[in-house]
Amino acid sequence: MGNIRLEAVHKAFGGVNVIPGIDLDIEDGSFVVFVGPSGCGKSTLLRLIAGLEDVTSGRIFIDGANVVDLPAARRGLSMVFQSYALYPHMSVRNNIGFGLKMAGQPKDEIKRKVEAAAASLNLTQYLDRKPGQLSGGQRQRVAIGRAIVREPKAFLFDEPLSNLDAALRVNMRLEIASLQKKLGTTAIYVTHDQVEAMTMADKIVVLNAGNVEQVGSPIELYERPANLFVAGFIGSPKMNLITGAPASSLGAETIGVRPEHLVAARDGEGWKGRIAVAEHLGSDTFLYVEVPGVGTLTSRTVGELGFKAGESVVLIPDAKRIHRFDKTGKAIR
């Protein structure tokens, strides 16, 4: 079991409210991603759940029990750190088995579990090496092995992939996601990378300045962003946000159109502009178009349509896919 509930969790450092107050429910077995720009309080929130920091006020329930007064060691959670935080003086075997040793499990039991965990992570041949002799990806696996071997109530991941190179990151992303599905253990994953969030999460929590901006499945967030912040943060390339006449004509302060919903054509009804840059990625082409009176808009078109920089183009928005936001930035539904 691993049901985690936050009630009015508030954290202040000195006089600064890092997290003004958060309520959140995380169901057992789900993969929840906290995403947001750096400094949004996502890591702090994770550390509050872990017990590495105190809440200033509020309550945290794990399986119905309030744990705010329990030290990290007794919350039954495990954590994968950004730096991996492996014990440099211990072999891989002892790194993975340290938690079991602390729990006082018998030696042969530890050996069995460590070897099973190592096998599932392809670490068997490295068991007697020290972390210093491993590559970044292998260290990452050891850190994960250390987390899973204790069969915790939940895994906490603090930007675990940010020290890996791009190719490895994609692999590990898949591996972590499938491992979590296989084990069925609750996972909370912190990242600033919205692609990781979109690909891995059952549920995404978008944080900004210590506040929850929106909670929902990746598709919900993509299709129905609750406000300007989420609209701008989720999706790559970013959603085009337009103010002024085009917005007010639709009864909104700001309107947003995703690049893929902005079709570029040689002529037609739409925003006329000049292509400043055309990025040809093969499968997609991104056009950066300067539209007088509106600004620079991004359009994503499929394949090669032969657009070149300097050409004139008309951008036609998909009328059903225009997001409208009011003065406060909230979505108008």
Partner: peptide, 8 residues
């Protein structure tokens, strides 16, 4: 990393 408990 310090909590009330570790500081105590």
């Amino acid at each position: 990393m310090s909590t009330r408990e570790t500081r105590a």
